[in-house]
Amino acid sequence: MKFLPMIQLTHEPIDFAALTESVRSTQAGAVVLFLGTVREMTHGRQTVALDYDGYPEMAQAKLKELEAEARTRWPVIEAVIVHRLGHLELGDVSVAVAVSCPHRHQAFDAGRFLIDRLKEVVPIWKKENWIDGSTEWVHPGTDEAVGSRQ
C-alpha cells in the first residue's frame, strides 16, 4: 500500500486515513497516528485561522533526517510525515505523523519523537489570525511567542 511519499509538504487537505493505511504492515503490531489541528483558543485569545509558511527544501531535508533518526532508535516499519502549508481554518489538520512498529510502545515513542522534533527543527512557521483582525507570527522564544509550544 505504498502510494504516498513518506515525507510531504502540501497545500491540500491531508488525507490522514489514506496516510494511516499506507503505514500498515503485516510486520507491524501497532500503528500510531498523530494529527495536529487548528485550535480556536490559545491563552484566552481566539483564533479564526492559521497561515503556515515553510522553507520547503530545508523542511524536506530535516524531516528526512528525523525519519532516519527515528529508524535508528526504534524498529520503525513505515513512517509518514505530512505537513500542510497555506491558509487553514479552525479544526483543519496541519500535520500528520503515522508510524508503524512491531509493538505499541515503539510506535508511540517514535511518533512522539517525530512530532516533538518537527516542532523544534523543521523550518515551518504559523501565523495567527486573531478574531480582532490582527495577525501575529508565532516564534517561540521571541516576544511574539504567544501560543507557542502548546
Binding site: Y55, M58, V95, I124, P140
Partner: peptide, 12 residues
C-alpha cells in the same frame, strides 16, 4: 547561494 534567515520555527 543557499543562505536563509528566519525566526524560531513553529510548525506542527
Amino acid at each position: 547561494t543557499d543562505l536563509a534567515v528566519f525566526p524560531p520555527v513553529s510548525g506542527g
